[in-house]
């Protein structure tokens, strides 16, 4: 038989972007230890709806740790206490009966709150749109092994490509910097032959966009890579620094 628990939840409630929010306290009984964190919030919302209250708005989509939607800071940590784990993959067995859990949205100028725990992360999309792609003519399917790539490069590119754009790195950073995210996107493409043609312009444009979005500057606290649910290495930031310097040194 699975255990159930009673929890005290303190959740950030905010009606809209322009209204001030505050932490509200809720008591939730009968939380099953096998529930995911988001299922626990579903149970709370069902209860709130039944009581005629506004349910807690939170972002979610895949619920399997791959889409990056489930942005929430749980007990002062983006995605909660478990390393390498998104909020949707966090299970209530991590907690025990009687626990108090605080939940609030990502806090950054570049991530304005839309409602409750939902923030607008389009700033990250604009950083990618500024250069996080390769320009190729599509239509013809290229043979999968037409372009040989060394094992080491392929592995590193895959590690950087694991970034799901969740923004936890920004949320975790004392400076709300998006260097880990941007570094992962730059790193992913710079490790591949396809990424070489636009290598220089890419990093310059992406960093320019990153700054324009109002993200902070990295001061090497290394909190981002510790909070990242995909465990993107801090190497991404050093790579971004190197690529950025290289782009200036190799100016045409």
């Amino acid at each position: 038989m699975s255990k159930t628990m009673t929890l005290t939840l303190q959740i950030w409630r905010q009606r809209s972007a322009n209204t001030p929010g505050s932490m509200q306290t809720y008591k939730l009984e009968g939380v099953n230890e096998h529930m995911s964190f988001l299922e626990m919030l579903d149970v709370l919302n069902a209860k709130l709806t039944k009581e005629g209250q506004d349910p807690v708005a939170f972002d979610h989509d895949c619920r399997e740790g791959i889409c990056g939607s489930c942005s929430m800071v749980i007990d002062g940590r983006p995605h909660g206490p478990r390393k390498g784990t998104t909020a949707c993959q966090l299970h209530m067995r991590t907690y025990k009966d009687g626990d108090t859990i605080t939940i609030e949205p990502w806090r950054a100028k570049a991530f304005p709150v839309i409602k409750d725990l939902v923030v607008d992360r389009a700033s990250l999309d604009r950083v990618v749109a500024a250069g996080g792609f390769v320009s190729v003519n599509t239509g013809v399917t290229v043979d999968a092994n037409a372009t040989p790539i060394g094992k080491k490069d392929a592995d590193e590119a895959m590690d950087y490509a694991a970034c799901i754009g969740c923004g936890a790195c920004v949320a975790a950073c004392p400076n709300a910097s998006a260097m880990l995210f941007t570094g992962a996107k730059v790193g992913h493409l710079v490790k591949l032959p396809q990424g070489q043609v636009e290598r220089r312009g890419r990093v310059l444009r992406m960093v320019e966009q990153m700054d324009r979005e109002g993200f902070g500057a990295c001061t090497n606290h290394r909190e981002c890579s510790e909070a990242c649910p995909k465990e993107i290495s801090f190497d991404a930031i050093e790579l971004l620094n190197r690529e950025y310097m290289r782009a200036h040194v190799t100016g045409e």
Partner: peptide, 12 residues
């Protein structure tokens, strides 16, 4: 300026 609103619960 990058974080105009501080966390309600201190970051751990």
């Amino acid at each position: 300026e990058a974080r105009p609103q501080a966390y309600a619960v201190p970051r751990r």
